[in-house]
Design a protein around this nucleic acid. Sequence first.
DNA 1: CATTTTTAGTTGCAAAAGCAACAAATTTCT
DNA 2: AGAAATTTGTTGCTTTTGCAACTAAAAATG
Lengths: 210, 210
Amino acid sequence: MIRNSNIDNFLYDFEHSCQKVQKKTFAKGETITSYIEKRNQFCILLSGNADLVRYDLNGNKTIVEHFSKNNIFGEVFYIVTTNNELLVEAKENCEVLFFIYDDINKKCQKNCKFHQTLTQYLPELILSKVIDLNMRIELLTKRSIRDKLLSYFSILSTRKLSTSFELPYSLTDLADYLSIDRSAMMRELKLLKEDGFVTKTGNRITLNYK
Amino acid sequence: MIRNSNIDNFLYDFEHSCQKVQKKTFAKGETITSYIEKRNQFCILLSGNADLVRYDLNGNKTIVEHFSKNNIFGEVFYIVTTNNELLVEAKENCEVLFFIYDDINKKCQKNCKFHQTLTQYLPELILSKVIDLNMRIELLTKRSIRDKLLSYFSILSTRKLSTSFELPYSLTDLADYLSIDRSAMMRELKLLKEDGFVTKTGNRITLNYK
DNA sequence: CATTTTTAGTTGCAAAAGCAACAAATTTCT
DNA sequence: AGAAATTTGTTGCTTTTGCAACTAAAAATG
């Protein structure tokens, strides 16, 4: 079972032998790609981190997905509707591999090492994406802000094997990620502290369950 | 590109040659499986349809996911937390294939046709799952009941290539799927009708956009 | 290192959504 | 066909959440 194994730099040091793949670098704040229908674009984030954001007609921003090292993304995973624009924005400097999904299974002319490695790891990469998406849905289907926060904290706690952990986002981004109003989230967080469920020092959260 | 192609009965008529695979039948209402950690169970729904449901500590039910023909599911796609039970329930009579995810890539002793077919189609199956999950997240991140309904209708409309379509769920289930209160949803639906955005006859919806 | 920008933290008020409790209509079951 | 169960449709009331508008603190930037 390869789940949760450390795939680390498996793609990072590939030999640029493959003509079908492009590697690009982006500075913080730049737009890495926008999702355009039927392009079948597939991307791998080699370093840095980025957000898939949606801007609706009212200008509201939603963080649809967050990507970190070795996460995959691209329009190939989406049915793009005309209603709103989906953009991937670099949160810090990023290196990204781009290619067209159709090309993955087609054997590369040179039968390059990169292609071999990619097809070998692809199921694992997609599986971990599915797990992430399911986790997100788990959170989003919680009916109250309190439940969303507690579930999210519980997941982080399980991951770190500790009741104490750092928040990976700013509180502003966390509200976007949970798809709730920031001030309402702050209010609920305050209540959670007052009720003794959590302790917060800086961006470190400690769960106090009995 | 195999996306959106008709994979149809590719697994249905396999020759039962593979010992690692079990095929089981379920009657409407039966529990197909429950998600138990580290079992690495992977399932394919051959016929019928089923829901992944969560019952929380208050007894509230949430439809986490809905499965129809050729959809894949199983605990392998989940990080199972102890907080709540995840069950797959047959909504009508179902046929399901079960196996352990680890076995997929291991070559079957007999190198059976089933295994070959499965590995061939697996990326397509997982990809369509990712597309479904992303669509769901798109809906769940919408901030109001009105936006959720309109987005959902818009997706169905795009799929059917028509402004008129049947709802695949009962309204009760739709509310669970969108993770909103049913009576609040009914109220909003009424307003949408009154405002002339949609027309509803039976469970057929027609969008009236200008 | 001073200044701009972003993030955190608060609060009153308004709007939206949830809850509960029905009746009516449909569907399912025997 | 008749009874039972489920789904639809509705409403008054309550609670939660969102919105707007701030100040304070922290971080980024030239």
